Simulated assay, not measured.
Amino acid sequence: MGKPKKHYKKNRGGAGQNRAETEAFLKKNRTKPDVIETSSGLQYTIKDPGTGKSPDEWSTVEVNQRILLVNGTVIKNTYHGTETDVFTMAEAIDGLKEGLALMKEGGKFLFVVPPDLAWGKRGAGSKIGPYTALIFDIRLEKVL
């Protein structure tokens, strides 16, 4: 008989575990007094409304953002670096397309993007598992 196989836990978590953790987080988050929930399930909090223009579906945006999993794991953070993120609205996940359209330049929002508005059942890369909600602490620096 050979050696027993070792089972390693994936960093991105299993579908069932992620779905349960996500559903519990979304349920608790929607009860906070400053959280607004859209009909699609996107949850957001306005930290600073901003005063500039809003992006549309053809815009390119420049943002500073901190992206987290619901357990607090940071996926990306541009706030402490020297470079912002620049991308087209067409490139953004559905939750960000919807959320960024609500913002004005200079605004800072906190978005909780449910899995069906993010990467759904497939996840993305090694950090974002299936059925994972994402938290975006995002400032819309400029609509280009």
Rank of each mutant, 00 (worst) to 15 (best):
Q65R: 06
E57W: 08
T84F: 07
D56G: 14
N71S: 13
G72A: 11
G52C: 05
Q65P: 07
D56W: 00
L96Y: 13
T60G: 01
Q65E: 13
Q65K: 12
K97P: 02
A90G: 11
R66Q: 12
T78P: 08
N77R: 10
V70Q: 12
G52T: 00
D56K: 02
L69R: 09
Y79V: 09
K97D: 03
S54R: 01
E62M: 04
A90E: 13
Y79Q: 08
L69I: 08
G95D: 00
I93D: 09
V70N: 15
L96K: 04
V61M: 04
W58E: 14
V70Y: 12
T82L: 13
N64C: 01
K53Q: 14
A92Y: 07
G99Q: 04
T60D: 05
D56Y: 04
N77S: 13
S59M: 07
I67N: 05
D85L: 12
S54H: 01
E91P: 02
Q65S: 10
D56P: 05
G52M: 07
D56M: 00
F87H: 07
V74K: 09
N64Q: 05
N71F: 15
L68V: 12
S54N: 05
F87V: 03
K76L: 14
T84N: 11
Q65D: 03
G99N: 05
R66I: 09
G72E: 02
